[in-house]
Structure formats: C-alpha cells, structure tokens
Design a protein around this nucleic acid. Structure first.
Lengths: 122, 122
DNA sequence: CCTAAACCTGACGTCAACGTGAGGTACGTG
DNA sequence: CACGTACCTCACGTTGACGTCAGGTTTAGG
C-alpha cells in the first residue's frame, strides 16, 4: 500500500507521542484512514490539525470542549451556541492571563527583594 | 478556649475548601495551632498565606515547589538555589503567558471569522 | 445535660491526558 | 521467506489537588 503518513511519522513531525495520537482518535479529535492491515494512515493536513489540538490543549481547553469547537475552527461555520462557547473560552483565557501576570509580578518582586538582600550582604 | 480562627472561618474567608486547608497542612504549606480538643486554630496571618498559596497554585507551581519557595517569599531571605528556582518559575509563567496570548489571538480570529460569516448570512 | 453544628482522622474516589507494559500483527528490505 | 521494526488493541498505572463518605469527638448555646 502507498501510505501517506503513518502514526510514527506524524508523531515525530508534530512532537506528540504515538499514544497521544491514538488518544486523540479515541476522543474523536482526529480521524485516520486505515491500511488493509489495519494501520493508521494520515493525510498531510493531519499535522496542522494536531498542532491546532495542541494549541487548544495548551490554552487549557478540555478535550470535550475541543471536540465541540474543532468543526467551526476548521470550517469557519458555527451555530450561535458555538460562538458563545468560543467567547466563553476566549474570556477564560484572558482571565487566566491576568492571573498569571499577577503571579509573575509577585514573583518578580520577590526576586528583586531577595537579590537586593543578597547584594546588601556582600 | 479563645480561638482566633477555626478552619471553617478560614475556609469561608479565603474561599478555599476545608479539605483544601487540611491538604495544605499535610503538604506542610500551612501550619496550625491546636485547641486542647485537637481542633485547628489559625492566626490572622493565615489568611494572607492561603491567598499566597492560591496565587502560586494558580500560576501552575506544584505544592512541592511552593513548599520550597514559601520561606523566602515570606521572609525575603533566599539561598542562590532558591533564587534560581524563583527565576525558573517566573520564566515558566512568562512562557505560559505567551502561549495563552497566542491561543487567545487564534480564538479571537476564529470568532471574527464565524461572526463575519453569520453577518454575511443575514 | 443535651443537642446541633462544626470539627477530627483515615482512606478510598475522581478526572484528564496520557504512560506503560502484554501479547500479537503488519510492513518492507535482504 | 526471514527478520527487525513499526504498528495494533486491550487494559491497568500515574499524577495533583482535592471530593467524599464513614465513624467518632469537640464546642457553643439553651
């Protein structure tokens, strides 16, 4: 058979594990054709999709949310409910950024404090 | 006994669960005095400390890391290793902010796309 | 003294995103 | 056709920050 891309290749190219790719399929985030022997065969576009999934995971979305939003993210077509969900998630991310920024500032001040103290000791 | 603050009060004031406070103690993040009857009694400063712990958790630090860094965060005194750790964590947070910002931008574009499509449909 | 509410210590359950074998099959190169 | 590597499907294990139930004790108030 002429395989476009098998799971090992996709894993190496995308930087995620083989297990993760099978998990994505289990969660209906990613489809695959199969060779007559039953091995997964991915089109080239799969790479892009995996990277998108990774981005959304990195943003803190759950696989359940991702599976709901992936269609409209790829196709650009969305129901009002999907749009609402998109906005909710974007706002959640924004709030999270606020939290992290605050924490970073706090840590920064602590760092200034202790380094100042150390310098004073010298 | 004259109790300063029992666990339920601290929980309500800080917004974390009673279970969480006991967990913090188990992880050595938070100490408590005990009444003769064995019930936890917290000083007023505990509230501040719990909020600090929450901030650090929210920033993605593990309890192990927090327990290592809490002393210098409260006292302002740190070994060089602790300073390194602080910097590592701050940079990790900064990187995470970058990720989230990227993801937020992506979602924002998707939202623009789909709303534009819906408007076009009208 | 009696009671209801708050508290105590175990100790097992949860959830997500995989990790990690076990045991067997497919692929492609010599 | 042999063989080494990549792949397959279960299915149980992992980690962190708690949730939750069980069974018993302490406390504050009337």
């Amino acid at each position: 058979m002429t395989c476009v891309m098998r799971i090992g290749q996709l894993a190496r190219r995308s930087g995620v594990s083989v297990r993760a790719l099978r998990y994505y399929e289990e969660q209906r985030l990613l489809e695959s054709a199969r060779t007559p022997g039953g091995q997964r065969d991915y089109p080239d576009e799969a790479l892009e999709r995996v990277q998108l999934i990774q981005d959304l995971f990195a943003a803190g979305l759950s696989s359940r949310t991702v599976v709901e939003l992936l269609p409209c993210v790829s196709t650009g077509v969305a129901t009002p409910a999907m749009v609402d969900q998109l906005i909710i998630e974007r706002d959640r991310i924004a709030a999270r950024i606020q939290d992290l920024t605050r924490a970073k500032t706090k840590l920064g001040r602590v760092i200034e404090n202790v380094t100042a103290a150390n310098v004073a000791q010298d």
